[in-house]
Simulated assay, not measured.
Amino acid sequence: MENSVSVKRRVEYLLKGNVIAVTSGKGGVGKSTVSVNLALSLARLGKRTAIIDLDIYGFSVPKILNINDRPKTMNGKIIPVESHGVSVMSMGFLVKGNEPIVWRGPMLGKMLEHFFKDVIWGGLDYTILDLPPGTGDVTLDMHQMLPSCKEIIVTTPHKTATHVAERAGTMAQKTNHEIIGVVENMAYFTPPESEEKYYLFGKGGGDQLAEALNTDILASIPFAMPNDDGETATIFEEGTNLYPYYNDLAKKVIELV
């Protein structure tokens, strides 16, 4: 059997390029939406990008990207699904329909190794890891397997969200991972044809979190605008109100890493 050191070396060899984990303290702050749109924006800027959905229990990346395909295999290895120019792997590809994952901790670590070692990723500039919220088994296993990974902490401005997100950031620091910044999501709402900002979740939480973690705010992203049918997009392409925010976020990430 491989020891932990050899596993780390093999994983980091296979995931060449910059690996960025996107995490949060709690669910419901838009972490997966940020992960997906950061990956898409990096790809639009010409970077070879992959996203690995490590939120094993709460996988959502295939739904956000509206992917109905399944990965193919070649010589016992998995070929990731491609969507919008991004290579994608998720637990959602390996279950039937919307079946829940009912596993205990040890199985989670094995699935991480499976995603890292048994998928043909090819040459990548950036790999975005969409982590589950909190500081549980998956996050701990990821920290051990990828000691040089960098992290982005996602929060809303709400005091409870930032309070819990600080724990996720502190865990990253204690495992010697570099936090490259904070993304404050759902920072405010601006009605159509108006410049007025309404701070529905309060104001200043992202700044407080960044100060507590000794890092910077990478982006303060407002609420997405619903369409005429009342539906809100999950992918923000050119022409949508959030496109420039994610484009700027991707440029900042490129500069920092």
Score class of each variant (00 low, 15 high):
residue 25 G to R: 06
residue 74 M to L: 15
residue 161 A to K: 05
residue 192 P to A: 12
residue 15 L to W: 03
residue 181 G to T: 04
residue 84 H to C: 04
residue 3 N to A: 08
residue 114 H to F: 15
residue 167 R to E: 02
residue 169 G to E: 01
residue 50 A to Q: 11
residue 141 D to I: 04
residue 74 M to N: 15
residue 26 K to V: 07
residue 66 N to H: 13
residue 188 Y to W: 12
residue 103 W to G: 05
residue 111 M to R: 13
residue 252 K to G: 05
residue 221 I to S: 02
residue 62 P to Q: 03
residue 239 G to N: 10
residue 210 A to T: 03
residue 33 T to I: 12
residue 131 L to C: 13
residue 150 K to I: 00
residue 229 D to E: 14
residue 160 T to W: 03
residue 22 V to I: 15
residue 159 K to M: 06
residue 207 D to P: 01
residue 127 T to D: 08
residue 59 F to V: 04
residue 190 T to S: 11
residue 136 G to N: 08
residue 33 T to R: 02
residue 60 S to R: 02
residue 53 D to G: 08
residue 246 Y to A: 05
residue 46 G to F: 14
residue 91 M to F: 10
residue 119 V to H: 11
residue 186 M to N: 07
residue 256 L to R: 13
residue 257 V to M: 12
residue 197 K to F: 09
residue 239 G to H: 10
residue 91 M to Y: 08
residue 166 E to I: 00
residue 98 N to W: 00
residue 225 M to Q: 13
residue 183 V to E: 09
residue 71 P to R: 13
residue 20 I to Q: 03
residue 15 L to S: 05
residue 30 G to N: 06
residue 68 N to W: 10
residue 197 K to P: 02
residue 181 G to S: 07
residue 100 P to C: 09
residue 196 E to D: 14
residue 70 R to W: 09
residue 131 L to F: 09
residue 83 S to R: 15
residue 217 I to M: 07
residue 50 A to N: 13
residue 254 I to D: 12
residue 197 K to I: 10
residue 249 L to D: 11
residue 192 P to N: 07
residue 239 G to F: 12
residue 191 P to F: 02
residue 230 G to H: 07
residue 198 Y to F: 14
residue 215 T to H: 02
